[in-house]
Simulated assay, not measured.
Amino acid sequence: MKKLTIFLFSIVTLISCNTKPTLQKYFVENTESKDFISIDLGSDIINTEKMSLTDSDKEALESFDKMNVLAFKKEETNKQNYDVEVEKVRTILKDTTSYNELMKFGSGSDGASIYFVGDDDHINEFVLFANKKENGFAVVRILGKDMNPMNIMKIMNLIQKSDINLDQLKPLQEMMK
């Protein structure tokens, strides 16, 4: 009986293990890579002390937890890795059971697309995937709870208006030069 219990537990454990690639796994796997720049930003990046906020601004901020940025800087030494890594991200984002495409900009090898995880009014993650063949690409995950597209637009607007600490973004600014 004990062997049967152990066997059944092992089977359940193996079945429940999700080997499907996700952006979270992709971020973890590449955070320490020399080809990538990784930045994690908390909600405190938005300095609202000198701003007057509407109730909808406050609601949007309350739904926002953090932002993760993973950027691949294309250089002469990693050209071949670039195509492989872009395809990995595209494959992950093609999983329509997890990621819903919201909109797409640009065409061909240069452009950006926005995805979300959840349903229209209860979004837990927005994903921006921007790609420029000459420079590289970036994946931005905006994580929160019960966000909606209007919340994200408000958060982006507040980020632009706020007095953010640009030192946190220096690695990304260096990459874009």
Rank of each mutant, 00 (worst) to 15 (best):
L128M: 15
T96N: 09
I155Y: 03
S63Q: 00
I37Y: 10
D121V: 02
I15L: 07
T22M: 03
I45K: 05
H122R: 10
S10F: 03
K3L: 10
L70D: 14
K73D: 11
L61Y: 05
G42L: 04
D57P: 01
F137P: 03
N124L: 09
S63V: 01
F129K: 00
L14A: 14
L4E: 04
N157Q: 12
D40V: 07
I123C: 02
I152W: 05
T54Q: 05
K94I: 02
E32N: 10
L143M: 11
V117F: 06
I11F: 06
A138C: 07
L41Y: 09
E174W: 03
I45G: 00
N78L: 01
I159W: 14
L169C: 13
L70M: 06
A112F: 14
D83I: 05
L93C: 01
E75R: 07
L128Q: 13
E125V: 03
E59R: 07
M150I: 05
M103I: 11
K88H: 08
R90F: 03
F27Q: 07
K20I: 03
S109T: 09
L8I: 13
V117H: 10
N151M: 02
T96D: 15
E85K: 13
Q24V: 08
N151D: 15
K2A: 08
Q168F: 14
G136V: 00
T13D: 00
D40N: 15
M103G: 11
I142E: 01
A71C: 08
K177Y: 09
Q24R: 07
H122D: 04
D40W: 12
A138P: 04
E29W: 00
M175T: 00
